[in-house]
Design a binder for these strands. Structure first.
Lengths: 202, 202
DNA sequence: TGGTTTAGTTATCAATCGATTACTTAGAGA
DNA sequence: TCTCTAAGTAATCGATTGATAACTAAACCA
């Protein structure tokens, strides 16, 4: 009688997706350089060399992570756009779609880490392209004016920053943190708090 | 006859400041983990062990960098506050003071890198404290309403992001980048472009 | 059922990096 | 001018980490 759980294998595409999910949170927490392939492997439940083999390099893994994140974000925006007969205004639907991305804690954060690495030749290029892709979507598909897009993006960057700062943890202790969060997440505070409460431990 | 330049020594406080300046740009470009003490040393013109000896650890060096950056930012805000008989509105003076911090390219960027490392125990704590210090200054000293502070900070985080993305480099090539930057830096575009043009090479 | 593909692992290496130790010397003061 | 403090360097080490190589075995298929 063996105590080990019988080894079941996945299709590599399925395993890739699991690793991408794990890597999203690891990169979100530690950044591109700070995160290790061993951490990602442990979070995904596979060996470290297998992570490298599936993605080639750590850099490629990070690129896949941020492209997946951008895809999910654009998809969510498109979903908000498709709710044509909603009684909620479009801008508010899009903001809600953005906030909803917090259900995977590292998703917006790994993007944010990419956004501040513009000097890295490969990552910087991908980050700029991704950011401008979002800009164009909001302008061309959502029909925003450039100034409206800029304000929307600004709110998004502040949200990313506050998530990166792990501000929600001090919500109860610092009344100023509470005040700021109540401004930054109007009507969506409890949603944000519940989403960031049950994030996965690394 | 020796070809070597005669070695002149500085007082350690003076050398500290030189290293902090160099470290600000290095951390701004590569982030906390990505930057190396050897890079900082080379940029400052000293040996790598001396950087470590002056600051104890790389983490302490980073903390000193972001605290110096926050000090400079608050000082600039205070300066804008003190121009009581200006014909420019206070909010615009503060925004200009913020943009002016770009004359040291890594200053806002090293802060931004700290802001997305909230999970790091020591750095995260310092980053949250610094961010909230800015919040309180704008609310209590500048007299902003919480919502006004939030919008001001959001614009700031978008600026940090665009600087981190190195967007200015594509200003001439991508008309959408130009459009976005003209929104994000109204009336201050040429200032921003000139400041980010002559940044120091790493 | 037997063979081949493919999902995975263990072991290990080379490079990088922060830190320590031991040493050297410029320069201020008596 | 002598001396001692403080500014700085060269050499090196141990730990970490991304990547590679060699191997194992599950699962699909003819």
């Amino acid at each position: 009688m063996s105590l080990e759980t019988p080894v079941t294998r996945m299709k590599s595409d399925e395993r890739r997706e699991l690793i991408l999910q794990a890597a999203t949170d690891v990169f979100g927490a530690s950044g591109y350089v700070g995160a290790t392939t061993a951490e990602v492997a442990r979070a995904a439940g596979v060996s470290q060399p297998y992570v490298v083999r599936l993605f080639g390099t750590k850099e490629q893994l990070f690129l896949d992570v941020i492209n997946r994140a951008l895809g999910k974000l654009i998809d969510a925006f498109q979903g908000a756009l498709d709710e044509v007969d909603s009684d909620i205004a479009l801008e508010k639907r899009l903001a809600l779609a953005y906030i909803n991305q917090l259900n995977q804690h590292g998703l917006l954060l790994s993007l944010m880490h990419a956004f501040v690495l513009g000097r890295e030749p490969v990552i910087g290029h991908a980050a700029r392209a991704g950011f401008m892709q979002v800009y164009r979507f909001l302008r061309d598909d959502a029909g925003f004016e450039p100034l409206q897009v800029q304000e929307f993006l600004a709110q998004g960057m502040l949200i990313n920053t506050m998530i990166g700062l792990d501000m929600a943890d001090e919500f109860d202790d610092d009344p100023d943190v509470r005040e700021l969060m109540e401004c930054a997440f109007p009507e969506k505070l409890d949603l944000v708090r519940s989403l960031s409460a049950d994030r996965v431990a690394l």
